[in-house]
Amino acid sequence: MPVVQVPRDDQYVLNHTTRFLARDVGEVAEPFHLPVVDTHWDGASAEVSYRFNDVTFVHRDDQAREVGVVGTFGELHTPVPLRQVRFLGEPTGLWAVTVRVGKGQVHRYRFAVDGRSVLDPVNPQRQRCDNGREWSRFFTHGCAVPISFDRWELRLLDRLVTQVLPFQLAENRRFLDDFYHRLSRSERDRQFPLAFLMDESVGVVNFIDKLLAREERHNLDDYKTCLRLIDGVLRARFPGREPAELGRQAFMDLYDELAANAVPGWDTGQYGEPRYFLVLLRRHAMTGAFAHPKHGGNNGAAAWAYLAERFEFDWRSALEAPLGRNTDYRG
């Protein structure tokens, strides 16, 4: 498919990148902001626009004569050229291009600088292909493709998250069941491609998977270590059983032990403060359940719909159509 370029001006590029990049000392701040993934607006239709993001690639090179980007969002052998970004009519050394990419996607890319292929030196997200070649990576809003975790980790995490959220309660589970059943098959497939994760955790696990791939990479090791330790603890306690298949009580007990900072069988040499992991999980669960669905959780706005049904919470009137029903605000 040909790449659709979007006209975003130089001011936009400077606004969203230079405060992180420009400096005399220290490293680039908040490098996860690159490439910039933002709302798409086609100037006419909220429904059509909602299916896409604008992705702005930015590369800094004072010496380059031409810079392009190739990636799986377009044709792998045809670089999309970046333009020189100017300030006061002078080249800044920044190069940029904005392209339209569908939501819910993961892509890899490399820059082509005067014919040389280079990784994005700022974006910390990387991906190694089967042939060993390393690529830079980005994902768009509402992405449900696992990035940070393996399947067993996702399933275990799902069970842990449900301990924190209110959806394990009988009446709330009924709500969720009803909520999902009201959706048409195609709607369910579109919104919940990982349906096995979408029951009581309303997509929180997917939110965490994305957060740890980007903004909170610094917390990924905590998850990897603790999930491995929890898996070991539960396997030792329930020999021959798959931890993610254990009953609710096993996870309620585990929660209490984490809260007490004393988990029998936990190797504190590998991770000293199990309670710290629980606190981390609590923040991520709360945020993932109730944040805007573009961050990967709160699937189909299920958690907001739950608040609206149980309490009073007219979230739809403020939010962009077609997710909400506000037609002035475009997201």
Binding site: V6, N15, W41, F290, H292, R330
Partner: peptide, 18 residues
């Protein structure tokens, strides 16, 4: 110029990731 705001109705914008 493109009809979109850089501000969003999104709780992650007020107090974001750690």
């Amino acid at each position: 110029p493109d009809g979109l705001s850089d501000f969003k109705r999104d709780e992650e914008f007020a107090t974001g990731a750690e």
